[in-house]
């Protein structure tokens, strides 16, 4: 698996780097928020029942 990016290495790598960072950031943010709100919801529901 040799990789020869030639003279365009910086372009290709920066495209991948920035895009992946944005994707991971968006996914991580959405996922963390999803988990947090879900936990909060469960806590409140338990409090109402108990």
């Amino acid at each position: 698996m040799t990789l020869e990016l030639g003279k365009y290495a910086s372009e290709v790598l920066s495209a991948y780097g920035v895009s992946l960072a944005l994707l991971v950031g968006l996914s991580g943010w959405s996922w963390r928020r999803y988990r947090r709100v879900k936990a909060e919801m469960e806590r409140v529901e338990r409090g109402r029942d108990g």
Partner: peptide, 16 residues
């Protein structure tokens, strides 16, 4: 996945 996740979050936030 992201839209379902975020929609779920919004629904729960509203309920909260």
């Amino acid at each position: 996945a992201l839209v379902l996740m975020r929609t779920g979050t919004e629904i729960r936030l509203r309920r909260l």
